[in-house]
Design a protein around this nucleic acid. Structure first.
Lengths: 209, 209
DNA sequence: CCATGATATGAAGAATTATTCAGTTTGAGG
DNA sequence: CCTCAAACTGAATAATTCTTCATATCATGG
């Protein structure tokens, strides 16, 4: 997935030599660390450069401004998330819908809770930077993957596919995120995950469709 | 519900005379308008004062800093939301759980979509200001109200009340918010609302509990 | 109608921070 | 080893914005 950021947010140039690649990586890493530690409002270009071990000028060679830097960091992050969801969807093609849903919940749950502070910090920065377009792009990709997966379900009866898929997607992504933001963990989180699976299965198995 | 903000975010003083009340109201209103129009990053104390028709100094008589102002605006807003959820919960005491859930979904859906831009703008400002404690407080209040309501359900079989309630709350609030953020509206939103009700009812009616 | 505390004013001060650019260093290919 | 473009440097600039405070006006109860 190639960066197709809006003109104003595009990187200035891509690194060509090896040391330049290392520089850009260091800048990304420093940015994430600072977002986690102090949040966007405390993140200054000088501090990013400092922590990355380069000078401000260097940062400005690759990113025309702070906004573009944050955008790039989040684009890379969400890209990787989307890839994982797509992989799960490919993997479960042709299985019963209930199992698909369970796998999807597990995958998404994992991506959120693996590095909770990074998840939180980056999400927050997206909101602050008004970059929700990145989240939409993520949703478009995952929606497509999930729709394709569910269409291939061995027990697919073909009725109301659009509505059912939309409902499942909205509920699963919404509930997992909400659970995450409520700080559920351990026993509680595990129970909720199970209950969510039960609920989705009950929805799929309902009679009065 | 009296303001019990952390020391650092408390208003400097409450208005005593009538004209002071009007001033504070104007400041609140101006703040919300600016948040909706330009977002927090463009909101300066000068602009708030300007739009409220007072001078900066006046604003600083009531709020020690910008942070406290935003905090107060959101506190007032979430307070009102919580009251509406609590009202619904009181109203449906003793009914069947399925109907309660439906009523809850309707109420929450309404509060979100009534003034979508205000909802979005204020939520965003909470995130940017790192005031998630306000959202927790909101959750604590609504959780308590919903727990009490469900405990009174005419068809309550008493099993796993804690887990069931937590699941329903997390799913409903999460899904409604996610639907809202995805920009669902019209037909699509209405269908999703119905499906969400169906899903929750299916969960409540499931056999293998 | 007067005294006093409440309320309002807004120019000035202090601090922070994004961004540039003229100049230096590095590395890869010939 | 030489050349040239790529990469890097960081002090200086320019702009923005929060917050204060000395001063002025208002409203209310005695």
């Amino acid at each position: 997935m190639i960066s197709s950021a809006p003109q104003a947010l595009k990187p200035r140039k891509r690194p060509q030599q090896r040391r330049a690649s290392a520089t850009v990586d260091a800048i990304f890493e420093a940015t994430i660390q600072l977002l986690v530690k102090d949040g966007l409002s405390q993140l200054t270009t000088t501090r990013v450069a400092e922590r990355a071990g380069v000078s401000v000028g260097t940062m400005y060679q690759y990113f025309p401004h702070k906004q573009a830097l944050i955008y790039a960091v989040n684009e890379r992050y969400l890209d990787r998330l989307a890839e994982r969801v797509e992989a799960t969807c490919r993997e479960w093609q042709g299985n019963p819908a209930g199992d698909m849903v369970e796998a999807l919940i597990d995958t998404y749950w994992h991506t959120k809770t693996e590095k909770p502070d990074v998840t939180r910090a980056l999400y927050r920065s997206v909101v602050e930077m008004d970059n929700e377009a990145l989240i939409s792009a993520f949703a478009v990709r995952t929606d497509a993957a999930i729709t394709a997966m569910l269409a291939s379900a061995s027990d697919n009866d073909g009725s109301d596919a659009r509505s059912n898929t939309r409902t499942l997607v909205t509920v699963i992504f919404g509930a997992v995120r909400n659970s995450f933001e409520r700080g559920h963990s351990g026993e509680v989180a595990e129970d909720l995950r199970r209950q969510l699976v039960i609920m989705c299965r009950a929805y799929l198995d309902r009679h009065g469709r």
